[in-house]
Design a protein around this nucleic acid. Structure first.
Lengths: 212, 212
DNA sequence: CCGACTATTGGACTGGTGGACAGGGTCGCC
DNA sequence: GGCGACCCTGTCCACCAGTCCAATAGTCGG
């Protein structure tokens, strides 16, 4: 039932051992024939870059909509894995992984599961969780040094409010808002409200940097 | 080799079928005894909330550092799964999952893999990729309506630059910067640079909303 | 060729912003 | 009781930001 796509069968030594009864083809089947559901389709990334892998997966799914696709790469990359998985691949692993591991992946994916290497998994989960943590206290390291009132003002400003609006919402004078803001600028080492907002919101952006 | 922790063994009917030779204990072993490596430890979340599950996993890993932990829940929650996995759990699944599935999970985790349900996986991956996409063109839907020059100005402003600084960096007059900004405000429906920055950066924040 | 769009700049004006300087009130702690 | 926080308010002032009116010039498609 297992089918692998690779330009040179020699590149798939371990896969051959894992699935002796499997087929290795040089290219995707031209027709979307009756090669229906459930079937496992192993794609060897070869020299494709991250975007190329993603497109290949998408193309394969257009031809064989219900295929369970696992992408194998000789030089696994996290970005490539994300692209592949986002396009519908059910797994991403090293092309030279041990036959036992390949079989295990085959079982998991064949039963409707997904396989992602522990490193990528840890990285994605760690990033997501860091974001969740920092979202609970939108400042984590940034706003924790502020007094409650300063924090409240900073939060309002981060939502785009002017001093006058903050004053009205918090029931204080515009002058007081300025005072809290001045203290906040000093503590956080920013020069104006714009940098404040960027500082407060960058914790979310941190995910992008840490994942990609 | 398999060990499950649950206050009432009756709650783990399917697990019992999956691992007839397994042991079910009411609580974590008090000592960090010689119950070393490789061993699978199945924790039943019972009535713990997301944070509680995370703490439990962390506590278990402190006592048995090399345990492979899988968390089972009668009412799986994505947030709880994130907490558990972030604290070092290797898997998260439904407590009443079919014995076959539980055994499969045991194989994967026992061999160093991780198990995450397809739904959570899809959600996390989708969110991460949405973020990556929006980061490639930080405007996706926001800045795409702008002219190249307006976009450039908006990008500088989003980094915290003043009009004067933008003018210097782009080699134009401060007056021109204002003109581009005015057009940008109009197109995006924002009233000032602060809301502009929020709009540009909120694509990143979208991840938090979609994951949690 | 002409209209639509974009890029560029000028002047004048209004309102928001941030800093400087100067207070007063409450609360907890040594 | 001082002393140090945090919270609140005031005035004056320089500067920045955003808008209105107005103008020149290049590009692109009909």
């Amino acid at each position: 039932m297992a089918v692998a796509i690779c330009s040179r069968a020699a590149l798939l030594g371990t896969w051959r051992k894992a699935f002796p009864e499997g087929r290795i083809c040089a290219a995707l089947p031209a027709t979307s024939g009756k090669d229906e559901g459930g079937g496992l389709l192993w794609l060897h990334a070869e020299r494709r870059d991250a975007a190329g892998v993603g497109e290949w997966v998408a193309d394969a799914l257009r031809r064989i909509p219900h295929a369970r696709i696992v992408v194998m790469s000789d030089a696994p990359e996290q970005v490539a894995a994300l692209h592949a998985l986002n396009q519908g691949a059910r797994g991403y692993c090293h092309a030279q992984a041990a036959p036992d591991l390949l079989r295990q992946i085959g079982v998991v994916v064949g039963n409707g599961g997904m396989w992602i290497g522990p490193e990528l998994m840890q990285r994605v989960l760690g990033s997501v969780n860091a974001l969740l943590d920092s979202r609970g206290a939108p400042s984590g390291d940034s706003l924790s040094a502020l007094t409650p009132r300063e924090r409240a003002v900073a939060m309002e400003v981060s939502k785009g409010a002017t001093n006058k609006e903050v004053a009205r919402r918090l029931g204080i004078t515009e002058r007081t808002v300025k005072a809290h803001l001045a203290a906040t600028f000093e503590k956080l080492g920013v020069r104006d409200r714009l940098e404040l907002v960027i500082r407060v919101r960058e914790s979310a952006t941190r995910l992008a940097r840490s994942v990609a």
